[in-house]
Every structure is written in structure tokens, then in C-alpha cells.
Design a protein around this nucleic acid. Structure first.
Lengths: 343, 343
DNA sequence: TCCGGCGTTTGCATCGAGGCAAGAACCGGC
DNA sequence: GCCGGTTCTTGCCTCGATGCAAACGCCGGA
């Protein structure tokens, strides 16, 4: 019944010889090889990947643990990671946590329990060091994305502090004086913290006044709601630095609804450089992290760990750049923003 | 060395008994069970999923073959499918084809070759009937999404023809008379064809004049470029029915850049109801397919096939609804569009 | 004619889990 | 004390592939 046996019978050899032909590791007489290949062709035999997995103790699968694949930043990153993984011969499985700590924990435990993954790439939102250490005594390697610098793990990130500074300096350079930071979070989430720190550092050494608006999550709805609160409270800022593009997209919607002109009355900058931001009007000034570099570096680091590298944890700093578009730069150039800002 | 053996030794039983305790299928004496459970706990033993896969001939993994996870419609659908799959105990693996037929073929072949997936959910863009039949003589079940009604396969879709009709009738009901269909495609892609057919059917029985603009792909860039062509060519339509929301988002950008007022001069409707359409301004009127129903139905159908059901191919028709927003309905209500149109 | 040596082929064991049925232990009943 | 019948435990085999090393066949050389 077993397919390999059938091939062997048809070719008049032992099952073992079929394996030898398939793997190519051992020398097989050309005549025999040909007979086996013909039989394989005739019977359409394919070696079972599961059998190989069992033998090798490897599955070739990597889990990507992120809050939410619907969010454009993560879907773009997920896409880049999927491609990078495939290039290295891995299959990427996307697991969504919705940013809930219990769910992040459950997934880590499950990933470890089922032992189906050769390694994990995790973008934690709410995990503590102990959380991360607990579920992998077995030693599935983990690479972290984002700013959670848990000790002992490889880590790929951009300089959120510097990037935030660049964005805020850009706003100051436009002559804005009342800057709102939108997207601080009450708990956890060090990306937010670092962006906030960058914001505050620049504000502190400037003449401008800064204010901070908190959100529960990075979403368009949160961004819009936050701006509504801010406008109601008054006086309105003349620039908003949003900690993510989806927040900024929500903010733009709320500003438009309130009849506030962007960028003339309020300049808006985001963070992530998602596709939507290029096509919203006014198009969105934003910090653009090199997502493909991040993806490549993460897969690369994980691959090395899977291959047994046990050197010190690596911390890869990926580049970013500030992309200025119409949401902060007004006027004459708005006619052809697509050409100017598209990559 | 083998973990199960260690557990057995520590508990003073045979390896087989450990399996019996774990699976729970066979009766084990309470005292023995407890000793084994203690040993499992002490040694932190987890049964290997790979071993189970080999034994059962099932992996619990489903492949989702789509053009592109970055595209918001597919990322939203992917998210819904991931959740639905998990609820049924499956793990979903997302494979991107970029809409290229060779890549779609390669993935189907690979999925079959590696035999890692229990089944596939495929949203084909360019596959022919023979393509689909060729690579699965082995019989991995396939469920198709979208409008490609290849015979012999389960199939989940919405009534694209009727939905397009609804959208166009909505535009006509606003008094528009020069309607542009944006998103027809030269080759393959029957979703486009059906939406085009719906458009033409309604136009034919109306007094309005219809025109059609072709695109190479569903993307914001294509939508923007198409509108630029149309405006250049003149005279401008007074309504545009876009065959997808990303096309519409590109169209809105191009219209804004050209200084064309939406909806006053041109009304714009889309298709898919992606998140960004709710937050762009003006917010986007669109056909909203019930994505969670689609996801649930697809996983459900595939699950039944995996379980051995070999009844006639099922064709599931998921509901949709037309969501009217500010891009077609002007004026007084624009102040609070979020509340009015959000689900 | 016999033997060493080479190239090729094959059997055995292993990676974990679990279906099957035989074996072991124990019970009450006569 | 012995027997039939439970209840529990265990060994064997299979799912596929493959590392390892033994076995095989064939060659030329002594």
C-alpha cells in the first residue's frame, strides 16, 4: 500500500534504493537510477514531508506572532516576512494575538507544546521577560520584533527614539508651536514609550509646547476618537505626531469631519509608512521603517539560531527614513504628490 | 533519550502506558494514571505533533492561496479565515501568488507534493479547470473562493452580478447619468466579468450612458492611473463604480488631486468594504460582502471534505449589503459619517 | 582458481505516536 | 483451590524517510 514500496516493486529494487535515488546522497548505478525514476514518474510518487520531518526533527515552519494581520503595518510586514522565509526554505505561519497578553502566552505555549515550529518571530505587545522565558525551556529559538528588548533574545528594530525625534523636528521646522503626541499608551508597549520619549526630548529643547494624548490601541477608530476629544477640549494643536499611520488616518478623518484644514491649520505626521498613507488626501507624512530589511534580518537571525548558532543575542538596527508628504507640507506641490512621494 | 521513554521509566510503567494516559482512549488505573501524570509534569513532557501527524496522516494545516496578503480585502479575509480555522482546530498557512498563474500553479503543486496540508482554500485569479485538476489526483480537497466556478469544486462566493447591479442602481438613483465602470480586466478574473455584466445589465435598461475603464490589477495605483486617463480624455463621468475598494481609494486620490468634488461632481462607489474606506474622506460607499460568513463557510466545507464527505460539490452563496456613505451621498449628513456607517 | 577491493544494494534501527490484540493481574463464585 | 471473567498493561507493528553498516556482485590480479 505504501507508495514507496510500489515504486520499488515496479522498478525491481528494494524500497531503500528508491530513497537513495530520491535523496541523491548515495551513489546509485545509472541504469538502476533510471528505472527508479521511471517508476516514480509512472506512479507519481512524492516523498512524504511528514516522514522527513519526523526523521530530521525539523518542520521547516516558522511562526509569526503578531497582534493582528488586518492592521496594514503587520500585513505589509507579514508579506515581507512570508517572502523572506520562503527564500530561506521556510514556511511562515501567522498567528494573531489581538494584542492580548493571555493570547500571546497561549500561542507561545502552544507553539512550544506542539513543537511544530522550528522557531518563532514575535512582536510582543504585553509580554514580560518571565513570560518569554517560561515556555521555551525546550529551546525553540525566538526573534523579537519591535522595541521590547527582553534580555537574552535576538532582536530586530529601528531606532524609535531617533525616528520620533526626526518627525517632531520636521514639524517644528515648519514653524509649528503647539505639538500633540497622539498614541501614548498607559501600559506596556515600549514602541510607544520610545516614540513618546523622542517627542518629549525634542520638545524640551525647543520653544514649542507639547501635549500628549493617550489611546488604548493603534487603530483608526482610536485615532479619530482621540482627535475628537482634543478638539472638544481646545485649544487645538497646530501639529499632531501620531505614533502610527492608522492613528493618523483616523486623525485625518476626524479633522476633515471637523472642518479643520490639513496641513494649513494642523499638520499631521504618522509612523509606519503603510500604503493607505500614500493615497489618502492629503497624503501622509510618515516615518518609513525599512520593512524588507527588518523581515530579512529577522528570518536571517532565526535561521542561524535554528542551525545551532548559540552566540550572544544579536540586536539588529534596521534603517528608517522620514517621508514628507502633503499632510505637513502645504501648497503648490500638492498637484502631483503621487509622483513625488511614491517609492 | 526519547522523552516518552524517560517518562515511562520515572513512572515505572511501559512507554505504551504513557501514550495511553496521554490519549485517554484506553482505561488506565487511577493510581497508574496519576503516577504517569506526575512524571509528565516533572519532566515537562509533551507528545510530538509530528509523530501524530505521521500516524494519522493528517497535519491539521490548511493552505490559503491568495494573490496578496497586503491587499486589505485579503488581509481582512485572511484574518477571518485564520480565526475560523483555529476554531475548527486547524492552522492556516497563507501563501501568496501575486496573481501570477505560474505561481498559483507552483503553489498547488507544492501543496500537493509536500503533502503537508489537509486541504486548500484557493482564491484563483488565473487558473483554468485543467490547472486545478492536474495537481490533485491525490485528492487534497480544495475549496474555491471568488467567482471562478470550476466544475467539481466546492465554492463560496457572493452574488457579484446582483451586488454590482445594486451599486449601479444606487448611483442611478442619485440622478447620475454618465456612469463609469472602473476595474474591468482583459483576461480571466470572473469576479470582474460578473461585476461588469451587472453594471451593463443595469445601464442597458436605464437612460444613462455607461463606459468601461480597464485595469491590469486591483490596486490603488491602478485606480488612480485609470482616473487620470479618464479625466484627461474627458468628458468626465458623474459617477464611478469601482470593482474594488482599493481601486476606489486610488480613484478618490486622483479625483482630489484633480480638484474634482466627490460626490458633488462625481460620485464614487467601491466593492469589498475594507476598513480604510470607512475612514477616507469622503467615506466610501461600497458593497460589503459578509467576510466572516465566507470564512466560516469555506472552512466548514473544507472540513467536511477532509472528514471524507464526498457528496456533490457545494456552492455557498454568502450575503452582502450595499453600504452607502459620503462618497455618493452628499451634504448635511457628512458631519457624523462614522456613526452612521460603522458596523 | 581464489582473493582483495571497489561500487552498489539492502536490511536494520530510529525518529514518536497509537491501533490492535495478547498477556498479566486480580476479582468473585463454586 | 481452581476457573471464568474483568480490568489493566504491554509488546508488536505501522505510519515514511534515512543514517549506518553489513552484504552483495563483479572486477582484475596473483
Amino acid at each position: 500500500m505504501s507508495r514507496r514500496e510500489e515504486v520499488a516493486r515496479l522498478a525491481g529494487v528494494s524500497p531503500r534504493t528508491v530513497s537513495n535515488v530520491v535523496s541523491g546522497a548515495v551513489t546509485v548505478a545509472p541504469a538502476t537510477r533510471q528505472r527508479v525514476l521511471d517508476a516514480i514518474e509512472r506512479l507519481d510518487y512524492r516523498p512524504s514531508e511528514i516522514g522527513r520531518m519526523l526523521r530530521k526533527g525539523r518542520t521547516g515552519m516558522i511562526a509569526l506572532v503578531i497582534p493582528d494581520i488586518e492592521s496594514p503595518y503587520f500585513s505589509e510586514l507579514g508579506s515581507a516576512l512570508t517572502d523572506a522565509a520562503r527564500r530561506r526554505g521556510y514556511t511562515l505561519v501567522i498567528e494573531q494575538t489581538d494584542g492580548v497578553r493571555d493570547r500571546e502566552l497561549e500561542l507561545l505555549a502552544r507553539a512550544d507544546t506542539k513543537a511544530v515550529f522550528d522557531g518563532l518571530i514575535v512582536n510582543p505587545l504585553a509580554l514580560t521577560d518571565e513570560d518569554l522565558n517560561r515556555p521555551t525551556p525546550r529551546g525553540r529559538p525566538i526573534v523579537l520584533l519591535g522595541e521590547e528588548t527582553h534580555p537574552g533574545f535576538d532582536h530586530v528594530h529601528i531606532d524609535n527614539f531617533a525616528a520620533a525625534q526626526d518627525a517632531v523636528r520636521h514639524l517644528l521646522g515648519l514653524g509649528r508651536t503647539r505639538i500633540l503626541a497622539l498614541g501614548a499608551q498607559r501600559k506596556g508597549h515600549s514602541s510607544s514609550s520610545l516614540r513618546l520619549a523622542g517627542f518629549e526630548a525634542v520638545i524640551a529643547e525647543s520653544d514649542a509646547t507639547g501635549s500628549v494624548e493617550y489611546v488604548d490601541s493603534f487603530s483608526r477608530a482610536s485615532g479619530a476618537a482621540a482627535v475628537e476629544r482634543v478638539l472638544e477640549r481646545g485649544p487645538a494643536p497646530d501639529a499632531i505626531f501620531c505614533f502610527s499611520d492608522v492613528l493618523a488616518l483616523g486623525a485625518l478623518a476626524a479633522l476633515a469631519d471637523a472642518g479643520v484644514a490639513v496641513p494649513d491649520e494642523v499638520a499631521v505626521a504618522g509612523f509606519d509608512d503603510v500604503e493607505d498613507g500614500r493615497y489618502v488626501r492629503p497624503s501622509l507624512t510618515t516615518v518609513s521603517p525599512a520593512k524588507d530589511v527588518i523581515a530579512e534580518a529577522a528570518i536571517d537571525a532565526l535561521h542561524r539560531r535554528i542551525e545551532g548558532d548559540d552566540s550572544e543575542p544579536a540586536h539588529v538596527l534596521a534603517p528608517y527614513r522620514l517621508v514628507t508628504r502633503a499632510s505637513t507640507i502645504s501648497g503648490d506641490r500638492v498637484g502631483a504628490p503621487l509622483r513625488r512621494t511614491d517609492r
